[in-house]
Amino acid sequence: MSHTDPLQPPHANGDETTELLSARGIRKSFGDNVVLQGIDFGVRRGEVVTLIGPSGSGKTTVLRSLNGLETPDAGTLEFDGGPAIDFARPVPPKQRLAMRDRSAMVFQQHNLFPHRTVLENVIEGPVRVQRVPKARAVAEAEALLERVGLAEKRDAYPHELSGGQQQRVGIVRALALKPDLLLFDEPTSALDPELVGEVLHVIKELADEGWTMVVVTHELSFARQAADEVLFMDGGVIVERGAPADIFTNPREERTRRFLDRILRPLD
């Protein structure tokens, strides 16, 4: 996290062919319930990967594993430049914090801190965790709020905002950490339909600017327009992966086809 311009994605060392993140053989069970049965994928710098699939397919668990909110039972995770984390062994807290340091999460239910203002929400991580001087953190937070159109809401409390505004603040809170990787967990699923657009618009802009991101979503139109790669998950495995044009127009797997049919033509 060395770049300084808060508005620019942090791929300064610019080689878009290197993998930023590589996950191998990720497995996870909750009790007897096997949620992930061996997930392999990589994310290159500047790439937008979307995870789609039915509820319970394990896509959110994959995302949460990347941020250390879930600990897989087995598999490895490697951020470039860092040591590989092997989940077969207990993860040292230091390694877990280092892994969190590389990414930032946007939640379905925004999870803003209700007792802090918009600005305080955004600078909490930079000031308290990253020890950025407060004046600089505030200036950067204001610039970020400005760009998502919420500059005048800096002193509002989260409950005073609409759902779409709350989620945009959630995105700004993540951006303020200057992560290498942005993680979105169904960022629009909890929103009223008319508010979905404003949030997707912001995410699409970030994608176009070159932020690296993994997005779990039910918004297939977003996946189609913004993703470089779409992973279709079902039953704890990645069933099919490819460019959005291929997946959406010409799915190879029967399970993918049935899922897309259900979403795109629910009444048929």
């Binding site: 941020n67 969190r100 939640f107 909490e124 308290r128 809170r173 950490l177």
Partner: peptide, 27 residues
């Protein structure tokens, strides 16, 4: 306090203790 508040603290890099003090206890 909802579990998501703990997770929000963790995801911005806070330790358990800091999350408790800065996020959970005030609520």
């Amino acid at each position: 306090v909802p579990k998501g508040q703990w997770e929000a603290g963790y995801t911005i890099g806070m330790s358990r203790g800091t999350t408790l003090r800065r996020v959970i206890l005030p609520q």
